[in-house]
Amino acid sequence: MNVAELLSAATDLATDGFRTDAGLTVDDIRRDLDLTEWELALGMLVDVSDEYPQPVRFWQLLAEAAELMRLDRSVAWCHWRAYEAVNGVIRADLALSAPEGGGRRSAIPGTGVLRPMWEIGHRTSAGEPDLAIARIWVEFASALEPGQQGSVRLAPLTPQRWRHLTPGDLITMHEIAAPIGIAEIISVLPSAPS
């Protein structure tokens, strides 16, 4: 399929009530598709609000279109959202420790490549924290600098271990032994319809 066909197929798969964070609907996107505004249409489609979860195939089609347009960050985002469509969404407000307080000395890249460990409330049989791994996607920025705070999305390696979390819960980020950040859960949403 070409870009137009992929974007049109994704638009056709959009669930009832589809709305972007900016309030745009499927009709707005179809108008841009008719005007051959492929990148604009892709941008609107990937901006779908978390309140309107889309099926995995929707995100796969968008990833293919973004690949054809050579939009690497959009490709990564669509793959991320496909993962969320299967496993649910975990958003959190992450505050990184400052380097002088034992925190990271380099920024967290924004595109989900860092896989730190998290203390999420589980214990080993010896009573020690049983850490879990989750990738981080930094929202609204290309990176999260040391000592800064920002919104992140988490993609757990074992999603079922994270199902007990609710908004307001605090989890601790680890990279080695010492904690390097605290995150407050903002929202936990279920997987998308199939």
Rank of each mutant, 00 (worst) to 15 (best):
Y83P: 06
T166F: 01
E175C: 12
A92V: 01
G88L: 00
W59V: 07
P129N: 04
A132L: 06
W137L: 11
A107V: 10
L157F: 13
R161W: 11
P159R: 01
W162L: 02
V56H: 04
E184Y: 13
W80M: 02
E145K: 14
E84S: 13
P53R: 08
Q149N: 05
P129H: 04
A66R: 10
T124N: 04
G121Q: 01
P167S: 07
L96E: 02
W77A: 08
F58A: 05
L62T: 01
Q60E: 15
R105E: 13
L157S: 14
A143P: 11
G112S: 12
E84D: 10
A178S: 15
V89A: 07
S187F: 03
W80A: 12
A132W: 01
R115E: 13
G168F: 02
E128C: 07
V113A: 04
I171M: 02
T172P: 06
A63Y: 05
R91I: 05
M69L: 15
C78T: 14
R73I: 15
V86S: 01
I180C: 12
S187A: 12
A95W: 01
R81F: 00
L94R: 02
V138G: 07
R73C: 15
H122D: 01
A107Q: 10
E84Y: 11
S106P: 13
E84C: 09
R163W: 06
R70V: 13
R153S: 11
G168Y: 03
M173W: 04
V113R: 10
W137V: 10
E145Q: 15
I180A: 08
S97H: 10
T111P: 14
A177C: 07
S125A: 14
S125R: 15
T124M: 03
A141M: 09
A107R: 09
G181D: 03
Q148Y: 08
V75N: 07
D93T: 10
P156I: 00
A178P: 11
S74E: 15
I108Q: 05
W59L: 10
S142Y: 11
A134Y: 00
A85W: 00
R135D: 11
W80S: 10
E84P: 09
R163P: 05
H122Y: 05
A92S: 05
Q160N: 14
A107M: 07
F140Y: 15
L131F: 06
T158Y: 01
G150H: 12
H79V: 10
G102W: 12
G103F: 10
L157K: 08
P99Y: 03
W77T: 06
R115D: 13
I90D: 00
I176G: 09
N87L: 05
P159I: 03
V75L: 11
G88W: 00
P159V: 01
R70W: 09
E119H: 07
R57Y: 06
I182K: 07
A82H: 05
E139G: 07
P99C: 12
L61K: 07
